[in-house]
Computed example of a mutant assay.
Amino acid sequence: MEGSGSSEAQGRDGGQVVVGVSDSLGGLAALRAATEEARRSDRVLVAVLAWEPPEGERRYARFADQEWARHRHGEARAALDRAFAEALGGPPRDVDLVCRVVRDRPGHALCATASGPDDLLVIGVHPRRLWRGRIHRYVVAHADCPVMTVPAPPGPTRHELRALRRATARDFVVTS
């Protein structure tokens, strides 16, 4: 699933489809939509999972631990693989795919990857927070290409969640 990098992804006419990958419902919906767009337009799909040290880069720089950074990179790589498994049942075989795990702020990593005017940047958003997300705001302000936002499927309502909390095993038994 690993690609060789930007020369491979940028070498085709018509740009590339860059998708921000996460394990959120919006991220998985974006991965499905980006894959379909890459398939439809015969473009390279570039899946990007960006990560940062939880304590921030400045603090990490003061107490750098290369082994820890390799561990976090491996976790991010496994999360990228899981996202493909959950969203599509595995990496698509009918699309040219480049996967990148990048240590950077997500918005910056996505805009740096989708830098051509013929590229398409795809991100997932929470359905109730279309204009409030930090990554969404950054990408819309800084991207040099069109941005497609894919809303996450709506989750259960408060009423449905309340009903599920009160449910017992008998409520799920099928009677004939």
Rank of each mutant, 00 (worst) to 15 (best):
E2I: 15
E2A: 07
G5D: 00
A9G: 09
Q10V: 01
Q10C: 07
G11N: 04
G11Q: 06
R12H: 07
R12D: 15
D13G: 13
G15C: 09
V17M: 04
V17A: 08
V18L: 01
V21H: 05
D23S: 02
S24Q: 01
L25D: 15
L25P: 13
L25Y: 08
L25Q: 08
G27Q: 02
A29P: 13
A30G: 14
L31C: 00
R32W: 03
A33P: 09
A34T: 12
E36D: 07
A38L: 06
S41V: 10
D42T: 13
R43D: 04
A47C: 12
A47P: 03
V48A: 08
W51N: 00
P53E: 00
P53C: 07
G56S: 12
E57C: 06
A61W: 12
R62G: 00
R62C: 00
F63L: 00
A64D: 03
A64E: 03
A64P: 03
A64N: 02
Q66A: 15
Q66H: 07
W68K: 03
R72I: 14
R72H: 10
R72V: 14
H73R: 15
R77Q: 15
A78W: 13
L80C: 04
R82P: 06
A83Q: 02
A83N: 02
A83V: 12
F84I: 08
A85N: 11
A87H: 12
L88R: 15
G90R: 10
P91V: 01
P92Y: 00
R93W: 06
D94V: 10
L97P: 11
R100V: 09
V101Y: 11
V102M: 09
D104W: 11
R105M: 07
R105N: 06
P106A: 12
P106L: 11
G107S: 11
H108W: 14
H108P: 01
A109N: 11
L110G: 07
C111H: 05
A112M: 03
A112F: 02
A114V: 10
S115D: 15
G116K: 12
G116V: 01
P117E: 10
P117D: 08
D118S: 10
D119M: 02
D119H: 14
L120H: 09
L121Q: 05
L121F: 04
V122C: 06
V122A: 05
V122I: 05
V125P: 03
P127W: 12
R128Y: 13
R129D: 10
R134D: 13
R134S: 15
H136C: 15
Y138M: 06
V139L: 09
A141T: 13
A141C: 05
A141W: 12
M148K: 13
M148F: 14
V150Y: 04
A152E: 15
A152Q: 06
P154K: 09
P154W: 07
G155P: 10
P156L: 13
P156K: 13
T157G: 01
A163D: 02
L164N: 09
R166S: 00
A167Y: 03
A167F: 11
A169Y: 05
R170M: 05
D171K: 00
T175E: 09
S176M: 04
S176H: 12
S176C: 03
S176Y: 07
